[in-house]
């Protein structure tokens, strides 16, 4: 850890040019709650830390007719306690509220949570379910990537060496839509063994599912959509049997591993339980009535 240099540029362009100047030696940091752990454990050994917190453009929650923009360096607690997000994009607020303690949420940022690319990230599943898109700033331009394509593997995102995640865009939810975020943990304060976000919309009348996204965390190298399970429900007015079929389908469609926190088979069982719960809750919320 000796001889590390530190920059906290006030503008995004400066951060990008620092990345260009230092190349592989440079590491980006936002809240630092995850980065500093890895630094302490020697898992990253950067020569230069580029702190993104001072960049105004990376902060804040803005909404318009098209949808919601959240700056990558926006604090987890700001997201969890934003009235707008709680009411319009509730599953994201719930995901953000599940990240660590209040101490952590007061430092950790949305961008940090996503760029760490942990398969268990509690904001990733809700954002994918909501159809979120990552806006990524490079040297020349800003590109946009659907969040489900953002993650490549544990700790690996699609960010190129000179790129910085700028903001997340979430399209406005359509009429009669709702979601649910579920997680399973060992104790109350815990990383998710499995998380599940469902977001669905119903046809203008009745209980037919028009569109649905089911996203699972911590059961594959990246957060994953289980489209086969979505297909079970799309275009149907689901009864209990259909929901169970979808949950079974989700459980069959994931690739969990055994680790110190849980066995793969328990994770798979929890995928089934959480998916079912999430679909049921989302349907209830979207229909306005159970």
């Amino acid at each position: 850890m000796k001889g590390i240099d530190y920059f906290a540029p006030p503008r995004l362009e400066e951060a990008v040019s620092l990345l260009r100047r230092y190349g592989k030696k440079a590491a980006l940091m936002a809240g630092g709650t995850d980065f500093l752990l890895r630094l302490e454990r020697g898992l990253v050994q950067p020569g230069v830390i580029v702190d993104l917190k001072k960049i105004r453009d990376l902060r804040g929650i803005k909404s318009n007719r098209a949808g919601l923009k959240i700056g990558a360096a926006t604090l987890m607690d700001e997201i969890a306690s934003s009235h707008l997000i709680q009411t319009r994009y509730g599953i994201l607020a719930k995901g953000a509220a599940a990240v660590g303690s209040i101490q952590t949420r007061n430092r950790a940022t949305l961008g940090g949570n996503l760029c760490n690319a942990s398969p268990a990230a509690d904001t990733a599943s809700p954002l994918i379910a909501l159809g979120g898109r990552a806006r990524i700033a490079g040297a020349k331009r800003v590109r946009e990537v659907p969040l489900e394509e953002f993650f490549l593997g544990p700790g690996k995102s699609c960010l190129q060496p000179n790129e910085i995640l700028k903001e997340i865009f979430i399209p406005s939810p359509v009429q009669r839509s709702a979601g649910s975020f579920q997680r399973c943990t060992r104790t109350a304060m815990d990383i998710a063994l499995v998380n599940c976000a469902v977001f669905l919309s119903l046809a203008s009348k009745g209980g037919v599912v028009q569109d649905i996204r089911i996203v699972l965390g911590a059961v594959a190298p990246t957060p994953v959509r289980v489209q086969a399970a979505e297909d079970v429900l799309r275009g149907k007015n689901p009864d209990e049997k259909t929901i169970e079929e979808a949950a079974d389908c989700a459980a069959a469609g994931v690739r969990p591993i055994d680790d110190v926190r849980s066995s793969a088979s328990y994770r798979r069982a929890m995928v089934r339980v959480l998916t079912k719960r999430a679909i049921e809750e989302a349907l209830r919320e979207a229909g306005g009535e159970a």
Binding site: R186, T187, A188, M189, D190, I191, V260, R261
Partner: peptide
């Protein structure tokens, strides 16, 4: 403490 789980106030 992330993986050796002692009780927090919520547990």
């Amino acid at each position: 403490f992330l993986d050796y789980k002692i009780f927090s106030s919520l547990d």
